[in-house]
């Protein structure tokens, strides 16, 4: 049996048909994990549009993410019930969970998102990278350093929100703002996103898979899977899927640049990865 975290507001927003879908999912959670959206629609005698709306109301971008969340919940249940104290056993489960978060994240990366991103990287427009402080700033640093290392110039890190607001108010709309948020709703990040939107500056965001404010502001949004955690107010949510995603973006861009050059200068030598 799987439990999804549904609060009252979400339940209230569901129509009768959608509630029937929910009921079906609860009763057949194991089978649903292997179903396609069409199969589920056929089983419940609703259209796939209804299923999709249902997933969106629950805060997922689509059926695939919904299934992913179901699966993650299912996995969480197992160790709790078996209550195995064996250290090694637990470590394996923890590593598996890390792995499934990265794998899920990897599956969310689409070629269209990447190509859209590369168009900004290719143009020499200034890229502003917001570093909100704390652990997330390490991600911004990582992105910045990797962009530098593959030869993308014109990347500026913004470390103070006042400075950021100042820059964004006077910015040319041919720029790119990169926002990384682990919750998707961090106040200062949302604020910068709104200012950028007001000035027609495109935004590339990296946010969790849930429905969140930063993602809604973004022009291109990459999503990742992770479990939010904190230690008495100080959060330490795993950033590994984000490191993974940034690396994947950079890797693909490098390959894209090399293949593009190969095409234009056919026959000539090109830079290769040593």
């Amino acid at each position: 049996m799987v439990t999804l975290h549904l609060d009252d507001a979400v339940i209230k927003s569901l129509s009768n048909n959608e509630l029937n879908v929910l009921k079906y999912v609860y009763e057949h959670s194991d089978e649903v994990l292997d179903m396609s959206i069409q199969t589920l629609a056929a089983q419940t005698s609703y259209s796939s549009a209804t299923i999709l709306r249902f997933c969106k109301k629950l805060g997922y971008s689509g059926f695939a993410e919904f299934k992913y969340a179901l699966r993650a919940e299912g996995r969480k249940d197992t160790p709790g019930t078996s209550a195995a104290k064996a250290q090694n056993f637990n470590t394996r489960i923890m590593i598996d969970s890390l792995c499934s978060n990265v794998e899920g994240t990897s599956n969310l990366i689409s070629e269209d998102q990447l190509i859209h991103t590369f168009r900004y990287f290719d143009s020499n427009c200034p890229i502003y990278l917001w570093a909100p402080g704390g652990i997330t700033s390490i991600l911004s640093d990582y992105f910045e350093k990797l962009l530098f290392s593959i030869g993308r110039q014109n990347v500026y890190k913004i470390e103070s929100s006042k400075m950021g607001e100042h820059i964004l108010r006077n910015i040319h709309s041919e720029s790119l703002l990169i926002l990384i948020s682990t919750t998707g709703d961090f106040g200062p990040t949302v604020r910068l996103g709104k200012i950028a939107r007001m000035n027609n500056v495109p935004i590339l965001s990296i946010t969790p898979y849930t429905n969140n404010e930063v993602a809604n502001l973004a022009t291109v949004n990459f999503r990742f899977f992770t479990n939010q955690r904190e230690n008495r107010g100080a959060e330490f949510t795993s950033r590994l899927p984000v490191f993974y995603m940034i690396n994947a973006i950079i890797r693909c861009y490098l390959q894209y640049k090399l293949s593009g050059r190969e095409q234009t200068e056919q026959g000539e030598n090109h830079d290769s990865i040593i």
Binding site: F148, S149, I150, G151, N247, R251, I273
Partner: peptide, 24 residues
């Protein structure tokens, strides 16, 4: 690995080990 003499090793494996140590 290098790209135009700049180190581009993304160190993802290193970040992974660090993350596991954090989890532990």
């Amino acid at each position: 690995e290098e790209y135009r003499h700049v180190d581009i090793n993304p160190r993802l494996g290193i970040f992974t080990i660090v993350q596991i140590l954090i989890e532990l």
